[in-house]
């Protein structure tokens, strides 16, 4: 007799638990306002990334096309996967001594793991992260970027 009741109580509890589960999905079905999906290409204009978002490494330039990088190579040494290559040049300074400036600050986006060590360890805070995240390109070579803009120079007093 006991097993007879157990048979029916099993059915009852089983059906009850199934209905509880269905109440959850049913509730979401009838409340589409709870949908959190972002409509990505449509919301592109007002899509705001967080200020610390690690999009890609950039060399921060000011309005006068000047940056703070003196080509010391600490970022290159700190990079775990060799994504940064510094090609520096020597030009005669104002006092006549040869002075080191960067010729090319090459950044291989395809190799970067966004660990942030270059930005953290830069002694003159020349590097930063941009909020750019749409990195897809048709050619791999386009991922090798030169970070210092053409014609840019170093801010006086940084070196």
């Amino acid at each position: 007799m006991n097993s007879f009741f157990k048979y029916f109580s099993d059915i009852f509890h089983g059906v009850k638990s199934l209905l509880i589960g269905m109440s959850v999905t049913g509730r979401y079905f009838f409340s589409p306002g709870q949908i959190v999906t972002q409509q990505y290409p449509e919301n592109r204009k007002d899509l705001q990334m967080f200020e610390r978002f690690k999009g890609e490494v950039i060399l921060i330039h000011d309005a006068n096309n000047q940056h703070r990088c003196n080509g010391c190579g600490i970022c290159e040494n700190n990079c775990p996967n060799g994504s940064i290559e510094i090609i520096s040049a020597r030009v005669p300074g104002e006092d006549g001594k040869p002075k080191r400036i960067i010729d090319k600050h090459i950044y291989h986006l395809g190799m970067c793991t966004f660990c942030g060590l270059c930005v953290k360890n830069c002694p003159s805070n020349a590097l930063g992260f941009s909020q750019e995240f749409e990195h897809a390109v048709f050619d791999r070579s386009k991922l090798n970027k030169v970070l210092n803009k053409p014609g840019s120079s170093i801010i006086k007093g940084v070196e």
Binding site: T25, G26, Y28, F29, P32, Q34, I35, V36, T37, Q39
Partner: peptide
């Protein structure tokens, strides 16, 4: 569409 709404998504759009 039904499964999308039940899963709190938009579905094909």
């Amino acid at each position: 569409k039904v499964c999308a709404f039940m899963q709190n998504r938009v579905g094909p759009n």
